[in-house]
Simulated assay, not measured.
Amino acid sequence: MLPLSLAAQETAQQARETAARAPDTLGTLLSLGVGLLAVVAIIYGCAWLIRRMNGMTGINNHAIRVVSVLAIGARERIALIEVGGQQILLGITPSGIRTLQVFETPVVDTNDAGGGDFARKLQAMIGKSWSAPERKD
Score class of each variant (00 low, 15 high):
Asp24Ser: 07
Met125His: 08
Ile78Glu: 12
Ala132Thr: 12
Ile64Ala: 07
Thr110Leu: 13
Glu76Phe: 03
Asn61Ile: 08
Ile50His: 07
Val102Gln: 03
Glu17Arg: 10
Pro23Glu: 08
Ala15Ser: 04
Gln86Asp: 09
Thr99Gln: 14
Cys46Pro: 00
Ile50Lys: 06
Ile92Ala: 01
Gly55Phe: 00
Gly116Ile: 11
Arg75Lys: 09
Ile59Leu: 05
Glu76Lys: 06
Arg51Pro: 04
Glu82Ala: 13
Val83Glu: 08
Ile92Tyr: 01
Gln14Ser: 09
Asp117His: 14
Leu29Thr: 08
Gly85Leu: 02
Asn60Trp: 00
Ile126Tyr: 14
Ala74Asn: 02
Thr25Ile: 14
Pro94Cys: 03
Trp48Tyr: 07
Val34Ser: 07
Ala124Thr: 06
Glu10Thr: 11
Gly73Val: 00
Phe103Trp: 11
Arg21His: 06
Asn61Phe: 03
Glu134Gly: 11
Ala15Phe: 04
Leu90Cys: 09
Thr105Asp: 14
Gly45Arg: 01
Leu90Ser: 03
Trp130Arg: 12
Ser129Asn: 15
Leu122Pro: 06
Glu10Val: 02
Gly55Gln: 07
Thr93Ala: 10
Gly127Pro: 00
Gly33Lys: 03
Tyr44His: 04
Tyr44Leu: 08
Ala8Glu: 12
Ala113Gln: 12
Leu70Pro: 00
Val102Gly: 01
Leu4Arg: 07
